[in-house]
Design a protein around this nucleic acid. Structure first.
Lengths: 256, 256
DNA sequence: ACATCTGTTACCCCTAATGTAACAATAAAC
DNA sequence: GTTTATTGTTACATTAGGGGTAACAGATGT
């Protein structure tokens, strides 16, 4: 019978530190419960010549048990134990690393300047960091409900302690979120949607000014998302002025 | 200034999935807080030609932020965030793997037979598994207090629910443990300490029979520790007979 | 006596990671 | 404005680890 091996499982085990052949061998042995080298080889297609060395390594790591003989039989240790061990070792390693990194007398750098963030995770991470530092006033613009929704809890909290201004381009698309929004004019929306610099179109997805000191803008350039953090007070001041203009009565439609 | 980089930290970060150069670069940047490619290169000795590609990769992963310019500046993201992310991803991967392994209709194999365990961790793991299944009677022999101590909590529990017989070779060395021990004769100790098969000396460190059904013996062969699990009832019966003989009045010294 | 199977060894191949050297583009210095 | 140094890029050499194949001695079974 062809008990096909789940390739996703193999890739996961590789991420946990096993080689491909080690992963295939262990998975094969878990499937078979108890088997000879040949049986594992036939199920997993790991070259028979390689199996023996791999089985030795796995046995030495404690992932399987051995019954000597001709042929020698092998038995997989309960995955819960094996994965648990791998996890524990990894966590210890992570904790140790963090301690050592912190020993480098690291402080959150408070350099007033401009930074560009290229990863989605990094962007959201930084937004949360900024949100956690807001004291008095937060101005947020968003053209993407899904993106904004990610920060719903943080924003809900800030609503209580500071002046929170949420600006969106289309009220309808944000109905599902429990906030009071202000809508920009089509004029402004079109302006944001058609920023083209050197042939590349920039879609502004999100923008935020915290206490008039820190701003972060998230946009798509081509098909990559990118964020720019600006901590220069002057720039933030200017940005705030622009958004204030957007909020002028003649420029804004209040919720109907 | 020669802020020497902690090689242990680099190795740890490698275990967390970074390459050596990625690790050096990130650590360098954490040390410098904010730096150009050249500065990182000078601190870490990562070839300058390589730095740029590596910095791109790290930025894409969200581990650092970028300020474009000439030269371009880089800034490390807080290690707590970075390590935290790596950890989360790993844990998710571990959980997923475990689920998938369990889907292979795996059951704890209850094969009556003989297995050999080569890793310390695997040995202790298996002993715990056996201890957790004891119903009525447990016979334990140990010549190594440290090793026995590892199972103190489990044994203390079993003491209440079943007949627990602990045999040691030298009472004095086990005084620190809160159990009532029986001591074997010197005759028997000598016998255990001088088992030589094909030039290799076997030191029996630990032995255990659970409910007369499962036995596990831990010994040192050469300088490697090894354990043998035997689930054949007949063998266990014989082993039990031997240990019972060791406990006969004429053969045993009761605690003085 | 023969065929089969087990466990081992010796190779080759490929890829990822690293290291080195050289070069164009840019910025700085004179 | 010309020269010099720096930045960022590209191409190539080297290495180590993992993977695949072939062949073999020894054990097992018919």
């Amino acid at each position: 019978m062809f008990s096909q091996i789940n390739p996703q499982l193999i890739r996961n085990l590789e991420k946990l530190g096993l080689t491909e052949n080690e992963a295939r061998t262990y998975v094969g042995l878990v499937s078979l419960r108890e088997a000879t080298a040949r049986e594992i080889h036939e199920l997993t297609n790991v070259p028979r010549a390689k199996i023996y060395e791999i089985l030795k390594v796995l046995a030495k790591k404690g992932y399987l048990e051995v019954r000597q003989g001709s042929p020698t039989y092998f038995r997989a240790v309960d995955p819960k134990q094996v994965i648990g061990k791998i996890k524990d070792e990894f966590i210890n390693c992570a904790i140790e690393s963090l301690d050592q990194l912190n020993e480098l007398s690291y402080e959150l750098p408070k350099t007033s300047s401009v930074w560009c963030i290229q990863s989605d995770w990094g962007i959201k991470n930084r937004i949360r960091e900024i949100l956690s530092g807001v004291k008095e006033e937060l101005i947020v613009f968003s053209s993407n409900p899904e993106f904004l929704k990610e920060f719903e809890p943080e924003l809900k909290n800030l609503e209580k302690t500071c002046s929170l201004i949420l600006i969106v381009n289309e009220l309808d698309r944000f109905r599902s979120l429990p906030f009071e929004f202000r809508e920009t004019t089509k004029e402004f929306t079109d302006f944001l949607n058609n920023i083209v610099i050197e042939g590349i179109r920039y879609d502004e997805e999100f923008f935020m000014i915290a206490d008039g000191k820190v701003s972060i803008g998230v946009h798509r350039a081509g098909n990559k998302r990118e964020a720019v953090v600006i901590k220069l007070p002057i720039v933030c001041y200017m940005q705030k002025m622009i958004y204030n203009r957007v909020l002028e009565p003649s420029f804004v439609k209040k919720e109907r």
